[in-house]
């Protein structure tokens, strides 16, 4: 038997993911405008660690979401509500979003792993150092982190536009991911 909408756990994880991603974007634009760190100036310490905490948590959330979605598949969308190209665009954008979220998180971690700063997840679990500090590698992974994040923002815009389109048509498709 299949549900018409997504599983409740998937819905909660999806919206938790959405809020976290927007928080990471907005807070990162702000924290990059804080003074560069020095022994007397530690403005960046808390926001950067929080950014890493949430980023690493996102990897766990997205893996959980993928597991729940694959295990509890909803009934397919009624084909009268979606043209074939829309259906394919929706599938492609979902795959791209999942892939890009993982890519942004991994590149961000690798960039951070090549700095002199340690990662202590939620200030409790110390991550082992996987590489010595390296300016070049930090910059390389940092650039990738930035570009994958911009692509992710672009794909999210497509995803949100699709949701709003279906909400205006009131065809029931958005209700699949908005059921508590």
């Amino acid at each position: 038997m299949q549900r018409q909408g997504f599983n409740r756990t998937a819905v909660i994880l999806h919206w938790l993911l959405a809020v976290s991603i927007f928080f990471l974007f907005i807070s990162s634009w702000w924290m990059m405008g804080l003074p560069l760190p020095s022994p007397e100036l530690q403005f960046r310490a808390f926001p950067f660690q929080l950014h890493k905490n949430i980023g690493i948590t996102l990897v766990i959330i997205i893996l959980m979401l993928l597991y729940v979605r694959l295990r509890h598949r909803p009934a397919p969308v009624d084909s009268t509500h979606m043209k074939p190209w829309m259906h394919w665009l929706a599938i492609l954008s979902h795959v791209a979003i999942y892939g890009l979220i993982l890519a942004v998180c991994v590149t961000g971690y690798l960039s951070s792993a090549h700095t002199r700063w340690d990662t202590v997840w939620w200030w409790t679990i110390e991550f082992p150092r996987i590489a010595p500090p390296s300016e070049d590698l930090n910059e390389y992974w940092g650039e990738l982190h930035m570009w994958t994040a911009w692509f992710l923002l672009g794909i999210i815009a497509v995803h949100v536009s699709g949701a709003i389109y279906h909400a205006f048509r009131n065809d029931g498709i958005v209700r699949r991911m908005m059921r508590w």
Partner: peptide, 26 residues
């Protein structure tokens, strides 16, 4: 077979307002 239906009688104003509220809320 569908075991759990969704409410398909939502008026347009509620559907649109709801989605806008969710997007802006996030």
């Amino acid at each position: 077979m569908v075991s759990e239906g969704l409410n398909n009688n939502t008026p347009s104003w509620a559907s649109i307002l709801g989605v806008v509220a969710i997007m802006l809320g996030v």
